[in-house]
């Protein structure tokens, strides 16, 4: 592995670049061929609507997001408060252990009930149904307006939590 071994003549460098281009071309051809062989229902579109994906919306709004492992840590943490932004019927059907229901539409009326457990710097995790909903992000933005500073959105939400075997609670109580 000497430095001299990497010094290529121009012709050799071109032959090496040609081999690299061939590898990349074969890779792209294989990728595209398999892409078109997939059933249309499972085929990824060429261009996704990532600009409106909840994780990117949160990133642009300056709201931290966390994923399954981070959500598991916060759900088990004694000093963190978890809010479920879904409607009461969905919350009652199943929610993360210890999560309080704080529906987006009813924040102003219901937040007072949590005043005793909330300081402006209390770590707060918010979630909703899953990656397709923005209620958790909207709730986080609302709580930020109200003066809370340590907010994190779990975009995977209830759907991902259940998919990966997370414990749940049913009913109106956390």
């Amino acid at each position: 592995m000497t430095a001299g071994a990497s010094a290529l003549r121009r012709g050799d460098a071109l032959r090496l670049a040609g081999a690299g281009a061939a590898l990349l071309a074969v890779s792209a051809a294989l990728g595209l061929a398999v892409h078109f062989l997939r059933p249309a229902a499972t085929r990824l579109p060429w261009v996704g609507d990532w600009a409106h994906h909840v994780e990117n919306l949160a990133f642009r709004a300056g709201v931290p997001v966390t994923f399954l492992e981070g959500a598991r840590m916060r759900v088990g943490a004694a000093d963190a408060v978890v809010f479920d932004a879904r409607i009461p019927e969905q919350y009652a059907a199943g929610h993360l252990p210890g999560a309080f229901n704080l529906p987006l539409e009813d924040v102003d009326r219901q937040l007072g009930a949590h005043a005793a457990r909330l300081r402006p710097d209390t770590p707060i995790l918010v979630y909703c149904g899953g990656a397709d909903c923005t209620d958790a992000l909207e709730l986080a933005l609302k709580l930020r307006e109200l003066g809370f500073s340590d907010l994190t959105v779990y975009p995977g939400g209830y759907a991902e939590w259940v998919q990966y075997g997370g414990a749940t609670r049913a009913g109106a109580a956390p």
Binding site: L23, L24, S27, A28, L30, G31, L32, V34, H35, L44
Partner: peptide, 8 residues
Amino acid sequence: IVLPWIEL
């Protein structure tokens, strides 16, 4: 879509 095939 393409990068995994480059890895392969």
